[in-house]
């Protein structure tokens, strides 16, 4: 089973993202910011990550840069999932190694499509 890590400081969003991803057949773990997510990755590298941008302690862009430096850190597919929808944020995310980008809010069809585009399958 594909292991997903949802990284978001909003408990509401983690909860609904977990529900949607589990419905799609993924095993889901959660982290509440970049620091928490790094620890989770060091403990068990996930296959895919749904990543918020703005979070306390460590934001999404800092996290993905740190992740991609790690041994095996190139492996997880990373899908940003954020309200940051301007050109510069998306460019920075792609340069840092993001595989896809979702604007909040989104629906199940969009999530399914974007995961498929990123090459993530349950």
């Amino acid at each position: 089973m594909t292991n997903f890590l949802v990284v978001d400081d909003s408990g509401v969003i983690r909860k609904i993202a977990r529900k949607m991803l589990e419905e799609l057949g993924f095993a889901v773990a959660e982290a509440c910011d970049g620091v928490d997510a790094i620890k989770a990755c060091e403990s068990a590298m996930p296959d895919a990550i749904l990543l918020d941008w703005n979070m306390p302690n460590m934001d999404g862009i800092t996290f993905i840069r740190a992740l991609r430096e790690k041994p095996e850190g190139e492996a997880p597919k990373v899908v940003f999932c954020t309200t940051e929808s301007d050109f510069s944020h998306i460019s920075a995310a792609l340069e840092a190694g993001a595989n896809e980008y979702i604007f909040k809010p989104f629906d199940m069809d969009t999530l399914r499509d974007k995961l498929s585009m990123a090459g993530v399958a349950a």
Partner: peptide, 23 residues
């Protein structure tokens, strides 16, 4: 809208073929 533009469109195509227009 941001909601419409991500339906079916990979982000790389969004960046290549679209420009921001307010929100």
């Amino acid at each position: 809208s941001a909601f419409e533009v991500q339906r079916g469109l990979p982000v790389q195509k969004l960046m290549k073929h679209f420009e921001p227009d307010g929100p």
